[in-house]
Simulated scan of single mutants.
Amino acid sequence: MNNPVHGDLIDGKAISALVLSEVGAAVSALREQGVHPALAVVLVGDDPASHVYVRNKVLRAEETGIRSIEHRLPAETAQSVLLDLIGQLNADPAINGILVQLPLPAHIDETRVLEAINPAKDVDGFHSSNVGGLSQGRAVLTPCTPAGCMRLLEQTCGTLAGKHAVVIGRSNIVGKPMAALLLQADCTVTVVHSRSIDAPALCRQGDIVIAAVGRPRMINASWLKPSAVVIDVGINRIEEDGKSRLVGDVDFASALPLVSAITPVPGGVGPMTIAMLMSNTVRAARQQHISHTQAVSATEQACLTTS
């Protein structure tokens, strides 16, 4: 397989296409066993960015053969109504993955909603059971953006063991799970955050730098070690030269001549997040099928024993 890294750029679109191809093959294999992977996407409210994200997720699902079911609810939807819907989706054996698009309206408790999702169908990897399992190194559904970053790093660097990885940001969605995945890959991991002393000096130690702080162009070349591999998770919209544009947390122009490889924004991590969501959905469908088959087999064995 050709390595889809072109010069200093890590091509997230090309690598996500590889992941989606793998997902499509896995979907075909499951269908031969009578399993039709299905993803339920719940969108509450009219946030424009959320609508774009959901549309892209639905398109990728259709491309890979995953059945996508959308539930669009008005912004004033009561929390109890949303929880009832999640309960129905949990109980539906035809639904393998459940994704509640964030952010939710202010009157809805995000934590309570995420905790209501069956961990086996939690394809975002946000349920506390999956978060805890990740920290213990168990095989659980993993948050999609960190999982996508890991695939980019594996494709770019090969083995990660022994490398010093610096994660900038400690959010529950990216920073913390990213650190856990890097530790599983036998990296030495430093997490840099707003209270860190001399953050640039800490970052310069990194063979790998993951930027996930949500501050446009905060990390410039002076923060980076020559030959570092940089994964820029940030997606920030700014006004520049009278135009609106997307930029990352890394000052791309200053970093590019220094580092060995870097993700662009857009076109880097973003496509990987959706690709890993599809991968998680197939993984959930496969595991649920195995669990169901084992349960049926155990029931049949019990009937034979008692007959």
Rank of each mutant, 00 (worst) to 15 (best):
D241G: 13
V250E: 01
D198E: 13
V41H: 01
A29I: 01
I208A: 07
A284V: 03
V213K: 00
L85N: 07
L181R: 06
A275R: 02
A253Y: 10
A75F: 00
I117D: 06
V140P: 02
G206T: 07
P74S: 12
K225C: 15
T142R: 09
A261C: 13
N118I: 01
E70G: 06
I69C: 08
H289T: 02
G158F: 06
R55N: 00
T111M: 04
V140M: 00
V166P: 04
S254C: 15
L20E: 13
A221L: 00
Q136N: 14
R72S: 01
A212T: 04
C187I: 09
I117H: 04
G270Q: 00
G132M: 12
I235K: 05
L246F: 13
A91N: 07
A165L: 08
G148C: 05
I208M: 10
L89H: 02
F126R: 03
G248R: 05
L141T: 05
R195D: 13
V58C: 14
L304N: 08
T64L: 05
E70A: 07
T273V: 00
V296A: 12
V131W: 01
D11P: 05
T305E: 14
A285I: 06
A94V: 13
A161Q: 06
V269P: 02
D251H: 15
C203R: 02
L43Q: 05
C144D: 00
D207E: 08
M272P: 03
L202Y: 07
V100P: 00
L256H: 14
P200S: 11
G133W: 01
S129E: 11
L83K: 06
A295R: 09
G268H: 03
L20D: 01
T159H: 15
V100S: 05
A14M: 08
I231D: 11
D232P: 08
R286E: 12
Q88R: 14
C157Q: 15
L104C: 11
I210N: 05
V191C: 02
P216H: 03
T306D: 04
S194K: 14
A221S: 14
G169C: 05
S68K: 01
T64S: 10
L39S: 09
L39Q: 02
E110Q: 15
F252E: 04
V42Y: 02
L20H: 07
Q205D: 11
T77K: 03
A298Q: 11
R170G: 11
V282N: 04
D8H: 13
R170K: 12
V54A: 04
T293K: 09
A106G: 10
L9W: 09
A49G: 06
A38D: 02
V209W: 07
L258G: 10
S80Q: 15
G137H: 12
S28P: 02
L246I: 09
V140H: 01
E154C: 06
N236V: 09
V23I: 10
K13F: 12
S129R: 11
A180Q: 11
V113Y: 08
L258S: 02
A147T: 09
A161V: 07
A17G: 06
A147F: 11
V44K: 06
P105G: 04
S28G: 08
F126P: 03
M150T: 06
N3F: 13
R283K: 15
T111I: 00
